[in-house]
Simulated assay, not measured.
Amino acid sequence: MARPSDTKTRIQAVARELFLEQGVQNTSLKQISDRLGITKPALYYHFESREELVRSIIQPLMDGLEAFVAGREPGGGRQLLEDYFDLIWQHREVLVMVLHAPAALVELDLMDRMWEWRKRLTVLLLGPAPANAARIHATVALGGMSDCVVEHADLPFDEVKAAAVEAALAALAH
């Protein structure tokens, strides 16, 4: 018999797969339970709602991002961008999910947290009072790296990382 944690992990894996295939909003708990070959009540044993299931999938990304910005001092340039790329690459499936279903972040009250870590990351890159133009460049740099992770996930990691970090540095240099 599978341990509850094994079943919970399987539920999350199948849910993530279906969310990527058809979107968060278009995936029902019944579809998830059917694909797993378990009953809907068995799924509810592990997750009380679809929102709780979605949150459990997004939460590791959120925790990772918050830990990332909390454990750093301003500065770092290339190393900061390389480490950031590593983190978002690790969570690229969740980023794809979020990009295709930003309403899920709003429903789960996670949007404000996402914007907050993004602001803190910008401060780490630029310092506490950057000019508007510098903040815009940071938005392009960080957003571009996230887009590269999503759009080029089928390419070799090292190739995408090198090009994305160089492009981010170039955006910040202007």
Rank of each mutant, 00 (worst) to 15 (best):
Val123Leu: 06
Ala15Asn: 08
Cys148Pro: 01
Glu17Gln: 14
Ala164Thr: 11
Val69Cys: 05
Phe157His: 14
Leu142Thr: 15
Glu51Ser: 14
Val140Thr: 06
Met114Asn: 10
Val94Asp: 02
Ala129Val: 04
Val94Ser: 08
Leu87Lys: 13
Ala168Thr: 07
His174Lys: 13
Ala67Cys: 00
Arg55Tyr: 11
Pro74Ala: 01
Leu108Tyr: 11
Leu81Met: 06
Gly37Phe: 04
Phe68Gly: 04
Ala162His: 14
Tyr84Gly: 01
Val96Leu: 10
Asp86Met: 04
Leu80Met: 07
Val24Arg: 01
Leu87His: 10
Asn132Gln: 07
Asn26Gly: 14
Leu121Val: 14
Glu166Trp: 01
Arg118Gln: 11
Leu142Met: 08
Gly127Gln: 10
Leu18Gly: 03
Ala171Pro: 05
Glu52Thr: 10
His137Ser: 06
Val94Pro: 03
Phe19Glu: 09
Glu66Ser: 11
Arg92Asn: 09
Ile32Pro: 01
Ser28Lys: 11
Leu18Val: 07
Val149Ile: 02
Leu65Cys: 06
Leu18Phe: 02
Leu155Phe: 10
Ser28Val: 07
Met145His: 08
Arg3His: 13
Met62Asn: 08
Ile38Asn: 05
Thr122Pro: 00
Val14Asn: 02
Pro4Cys: 01
Gln12Cys: 06
Asp112Leu: 14
Ala171Ile: 04
Met111Leu: 09
Arg113His: 13
Val54Gly: 07
Met62His: 10
Gly64Val: 05
Pro60Gln: 06
Ile11Arg: 00
Asp158Gly: 09
Glu151Ala: 11
Gly37His: 08
Leu80Ser: 06
Ala134Thr: 00
Leu99Tyr: 11
Pro156Ile: 03
Phe68Pro: 03
Thr139Ala: 10
Leu65Asp: 04
Met145Asn: 05
Ile57Met: 09
His91Pro: 05
His152Arg: 15
Glu116Thr: 15
Ala168Tyr: 06
Gly77Leu: 02
Trp117Lys: 04
Leu20Ile: 11
Thr27Lys: 02
Thr139Leu: 04
Leu65Arg: 09
Leu80Asp: 00
Ser33Trp: 08
Ala141Leu: 00
Gly144Phe: 06
Trp117Asn: 03
Asp34Cys: 02
Glu66Gly: 07
Arg16Leu: 15
Pro74Lys: 06
Gly64Gln: 05
Arg118Gly: 09
Ala162Arg: 15
His137Leu: 01
Ala104Tyr: 02
Leu87Arg: 13
Arg16Asp: 07
Met97Tyr: 07
Pro4Ile: 05
Ile88Thr: 15
Tyr84Cys: 03
Leu80Thr: 10
Phe68Ala: 08
Leu87Val: 09
Glu166Val: 03
Arg113Cys: 05
Asp112Asn: 13
Leu81Phe: 08
Pro60Cys: 02
Ala129Arg: 14
Leu108Arg: 02
Asp6Pro: 00
Ser33Ile: 04
Pro128Met: 00
Asp112Lys: 15
Phe68Thr: 03
Gln59Phe: 00
Ala131Gly: 15
Ile11Asn: 02
Leu36Val: 11
His152Cys: 11
Val14Pro: 00
Leu95Phe: 14
Ala162Ile: 07
Arg35Ser: 07
Arg135Met: 09
Ala70Trp: 03
Arg135Pro: 00
Arg118Asn: 13
Gln25Lys: 14
Phe47Glu: 04
Gln25His: 13
Ser5Asp: 09
Asn132Asp: 01
Ile38Gln: 01
Ile57His: 09
Val106Met: 08
Lys40Met: 10
His137Gly: 08
Trp89Cys: 04
Pro4Asn: 08
Leu36Gln: 10
Arg3Ala: 12
Pro41Asn: 06
Val140His: 05
Ile57Arg: 11
Ile58Arg: 01
Gln12Met: 11
